[in-house]
Simulated scan of single mutants.
Amino acid sequence: MKRTLQQRLQDGPVVCGEGYLFELERRGYLQAGSFVPEVALENPQALKQTYRDYMNAGSDVVLAFTYNAHREKMRIIGKEDLLEPLNREAIRLAKEVAQEHPTEEALVAGNVSNTNLFDPEDPASKEKVRSMFAEMLTWCKEEGVDFVNGETFYYYEEAQIALEEILKQDLPAVITLGVMGENKMRDGYEVDEACQKLQENGALVVGMNCFRGPATMQPYVNKIRETVDGYVAALPVPYRTTEEHPTFFNLPDGGCSCHLPTETTFPTSLDPLYCNRYEIANWAKEAYDVGVNYFGLCCGASPSMLREVAETVGREAVNSKYSPNMEKHFLFGSDESLKSHNTQFRTKA
Rank of each mutant, 00 (worst) to 15 (best):
Y156N: 04
L204H: 03
L82R: 14
V232G: 02
E164Q: 10
R92L: 14
V232T: 02
M74Q: 11
D53M: 09
T343E: 11
V15A: 07
E23A: 11
E151K: 10
S113I: 08
H101T: 01
M326V: 04
I166K: 01
D122P: 10
E121G: 15
T50P: 01
R75P: 10
C256M: 00
L198D: 06
A233W: 00
Q218L: 15
I280Q: 05
K223H: 10
Y154F: 15
Q10T: 05
E226N: 12
A287V: 07
V232C: 08
Q169Y: 05
P37I: 05
D81I: 00
G28V: 01
Y67M: 00
A233T: 02
K128E: 14
L331T: 11
W283Y: 05
V108S: 11
L198V: 07
C258T: 14
G58E: 07
R71W: 13
Y278P: 02
Y231I: 08
L86A: 03
K79P: 03
T265S: 15
M74R: 10
N56Q: 13
Y322R: 11
F249M: 15
T262A: 12
R26G: 00
Q344E: 13
G300I: 02
V15E: 10
A69D: 04
Y231A: 03
V129C: 08
K223N: 13
I166E: 06
R212N: 12
A69S: 09
P261V: 00
M185T: 09
A284L: 11
C195S: 01
L21G: 02
E311V: 05
Q218E: 15
W283N: 00
Q6L: 15
S323T: 07
E327D: 13
K2M: 04
E243N: 08
H70N: 12
A215D: 11
Q344A: 01
Y220T: 05
P303L: 10
L30V: 06
P324V: 00
R186E: 13
T343K: 09
F295Q: 05
E38I: 11
G12A: 01
L273I: 06
G78H: 07
K339F: 06
A109L: 09
P246Q: 05
L47F: 09
I77S: 14
F266Q: 07
D335I: 05
V309Q: 09
S334N: 02
N201Y: 05
V145Q: 07
F35I: 03
T115Y: 03
G144I: 03
C258A: 15
L137Q: 00
F332E: 03
A284D: 06
P267L: 14
K48F: 06
S59Y: 04
A64F: 01
T115D: 10
F65N: 04
A215E: 12
E244Y: 00
A194G: 03
E157I: 02
N183W: 13
V221M: 11
M132W: 08
E143G: 05
G110E: 02
P172F: 09
M132S: 14
P261L: 07
G255E: 15
K128L: 12
L5N: 05
W283P: 04
A32L: 12
K168V: 09
P236S: 10
E18N: 06
S304C: 15
P272F: 12
R26N: 14
P13N: 04
Q45F: 07
L86F: 02
E279F: 01
G202S: 06
I166H: 09
A233Q: 03
V205H: 03
E25P: 00
A134I: 00
G12D: 06
N342T: 06
D271T: 14
T247H: 04
F211C: 13
L235I: 09
G213S: 09
E142V: 07
Y20E: 10
